[in-house]
Amino acid sequence: MPKVSVNGVALYYEEHGEGVPILGLHGTPGSAALWAGAAVALSNHGRCIIFDRRGFHRSALVPPPSTLDLIQHVDDAAALLAALHAGPAVVIGPGTGGLIALGLARHFPDKVKALVLLEPALFTIDPDADTWARGLRQRVLGASRDRPFGVAEVVMREAWGVQSWDALPGDIHEMLAHTSPAVLAEIRGRGLDLSDSPLEMNEDDLADIRRPSLILSAEGSPHVLRLITSRLSGALPYTESVLVSGGHLINPAHPAVLDFVDRMAATPSSWV
């Protein structure tokens, strides 16, 4: 099981294909295991790197951390790219992964060639989305008192939808359930989407992220997620927006993503 040590933790990772680096940042709850099919498809378009984030699945920590902060995930992603001599990369992030991708572009712009944001969880950009996220945070914390390993299910049923959750096989349910300690650690930490102190980025902050960005939203997702993508589309300087069918679990190797990756591979990194 390949691992690389960065910032005091051993991160599980996989590499598929060659060419322009493509970094996949899974959401919360989640794991690189959910990217298996997408990684194969992306490997036909570049060097796809996926990994389990700090505290999740094969990068689990013993004992589990009490808190996880956004900046830790951002620093880990940057260090992983450096350790693998990969970058600048096309960074793909769904949900919380999209939030981390934005943090990476903000703090380590030299590591980022372009962004693919699949309904990123920057809830603070919209008042209604922020209110929804704070309500979800309270429901998750309430559920954790009686079912600590049911936290992941609560988050996914709310964001993905009941049908999407129920369609997953039992072994994936079990794997995601065991990421619940990491989910709670993020909620107790700083900067993540369901933290008590989530990341806030104003229009000036977003305008400073001068990288090509593809923003995908799904027709069947909660309305608040489309509010976020709409606001981001207007705030990030170089954006393309695509509405896809289905729910929040958007395929990271959607045809629109593959086309974007191909175009970015042919574009000099110094274009901005």
Score class of each variant (00 low, 15 high):
210 R>Q: 11
217 S>V: 01
238 Y>D: 12
230 S>L: 04
173 H>C: 01
207 A>K: 11
166 D>S: 10
231 R>N: 01
172 I>G: 02
188 R>G: 04
181 P>G: 09
192 L>G: 13
167 A>C: 02
183 V>D: 14
264 M>Q: 15
188 R>H: 15
223 H>W: 10
193 D>K: 00
211 R>N: 08
173 H>D: 03
221 S>G: 04
240 E>S: 11
200 E>W: 12
219 E>K: 13
176 L>G: 13
182 A>V: 12
255 P>W: 07
229 T>S: 14
258 L>K: 11
175 M>A: 12
195 S>I: 09
176 L>W: 06
239 T>V: 11
198 P>C: 03
253 A>H: 10
224 V>W: 02
241 S>I: 08
218 A>Y: 05
223 H>P: 00
211 R>L: 09
196 D>P: 03
229 T>D: 09
255 P>Q: 10
198 P>Q: 11
185 A>C: 10
168 L>A: 11
168 L>V: 07
177 A>M: 09
209 I>G: 01
188 R>V: 03
246 G>T: 10
200 E>L: 13
202 N>H: 07
262 D>K: 15
256 A>R: 13
172 I>V: 15
199 L>F: 10
259 D>S: 15
199 L>K: 02
202 N>W: 01
228 I>E: 01
197 S>C: 07
227 L>S: 08
177 A>S: 15
211 R>S: 08
170 G>V: 13
255 P>G: 04
222 P>L: 06
169 P>T: 04
259 D>Y: 13
215 I>E: 07
185 A>M: 03
178 H>G: 02
211 R>T: 06
193 D>E: 12
240 E>C: 09
231 R>I: 06
264 M>N: 00
232 L>C: 10
168 L>E: 10
218 A>V: 10
177 A>G: 06
206 L>H: 00
183 V>K: 02
174 E>K: 14
221 S>A: 09
254 H>P: 00
166 D>P: 06
215 I>S: 04
172 I>C: 05
264 M>I: 11
248 H>Y: 13
173 H>T: 03
209 I>L: 15
247 G>Y: 04
216 L>H: 02
177 A>K: 13
179 T>A: 04
263 R>T: 00
173 H>Y: 02
259 D>N: 15
163 Q>M: 07
179 T>Y: 09
222 P>H: 05
228 I>D: 03
167 A>L: 13
257 V>Q: 01
262 D>S: 13
182 A>P: 13
255 P>S: 06
218 A>M: 10
168 L>M: 14
208 D>V: 01
248 H>K: 01
231 R>L: 05
258 L>T: 08
190 R>A: 06
264 M>E: 09
205 D>E: 08
166 D>Y: 03
172 I>E: 09
226 R>Q: 06
167 A>V: 05
242 V>G: 00
236 L>M: 04
229 T>Y: 06
241 S>L: 12
238 Y>I: 07
237 P>G: 01
187 I>N: 12
259 D>F: 08
171 D>W: 14
165 W>S: 08
261 V>L: 04
187 I>Y: 11
223 H>S: 11
204 D>V: 06
183 V>G: 03
248 H>T: 05
